[in-house]
């Protein structure tokens, strides 16, 4: 059974292939995403994030989830040499770079707790896989062509891992990068990271993308992570263990 909703400004899809899956379980997962949106959104005035930025909540009174996200953000910032940060340009607190992966991971733990073993949860192109698909094979996960959104340029075979892709819209002659107006011609447009779970994959994909061409080296140096980066010539560079994840017919 598969369901999809547009939430938090992005499509969220859930497919569960276990026998006897109940429809109400989808509702539970979507409700969790609603909760996350209400709590962490930077543009909802009532969210805890906004309240923190307005100085309305003391640190001791932060919710448990907020404390956890702040702790994880600090850890990620250290591990990525500051390429991951929760401080936005205006100096405000913005944890959203980490919250999506964190939320997908939590939602998967919820499904596991309810006894489900074969499913995936996808939110805005970031995916956590568990077990097998309806054909009792590993999940076949495509990587989207950053130049043509309806095409796939790689198919991976995943079971248990998380996969996240960071990127920008096509930058070509028509589109100018505000930071590197006269930059070298080779730039990255899409960076995919496969990791032990979606929380791990997402936070490192976000940070590695910000590193530009160096990002794929950063992923290569991490244990249990693989990466696939596409530059603006359509040339992909991938880590030494990536090939093993690709779908074999």
């Amino acid at each position: 059974m598969k369901q999809e909703r547009i939430m938090m400004g992005m499509p969220i899809s859930i497919e569960i292939v276990d026998l006897g899956v109940k429809e109400k379980v989808f509702e539970q997962v979507f409700n969790f995403f609603t909760y996350v949106d209400e709590k962490f959104s930077t543009y909802k005035i009532s969210s805890e994030t906004s309240q923190i930025n307005q100085g309305l909540i003391k640190e001791n009174d932060y919710s448990e989830d907020m404390k956890e996200v702040i702790k994880l953000s600090a850890e990620t910032m250290r591990q990525t040499n500051g390429f991951f940060t929760t401080t936005d340009v205006d100096g405000n607190f913005d944890p959203l770079g980490l919250v999506k992966g964190w939320a997908i991971n939590k939602a998967c733990l919820l499904l596991e707790k309810l006894g489900y073993k074969n499913f995936y949860i996808e939110a805005g192109g970031d995916i956590q896989t568990k077990g097998n698909n309806k054909d009792n094979k590993f999940w076949a996960v495509g990587i989207r062509n950053p130049f043509k959104l309806d095409e796939i340029i790689k198919v991976l075979s995943l079971s248990g891992q998380g996969i996240a892709t960071s990127g920008t819209y096509l930058r070509g002659q028509h589109i100018t990068n505000p930071f590197k107006l006269n930059s070298a011609i080779t730039e990255i447009v899409s960076l995919t990271v496969v990791g032990p779970n979606i929380y791990e994959a997402d936070r490192f994909a976000t940070a590695a993308f910000a590193m530009g061409k160096a990002g794929i080296h950063f992923i290569e140096n991490l244990t249990d992570f693989e990466g696939y980066v596409v530059d603006n010539f359509g040339v992909a560079t991938y880590t030494s263990g990536f090939e093993k994840l690709t779908f074999k017919v």
Partner: peptide
């Protein structure tokens, strides 16, 4: 960025694959 890895990375030109997949990863947000 510290610690560039040794050149064990591989490259290829991207190629369109069969779209017969369960789910797709991509940067949709931006």
């Amino acid at each position: 960025v510290s610690a560039y890895s040794t050149p064990i990375l591989r490259t290829e030109a991207i190629q369109v694959q069969s779209a017969n997949v369960d789910v797709v990863s991509g940067a949709t947000a931006t």
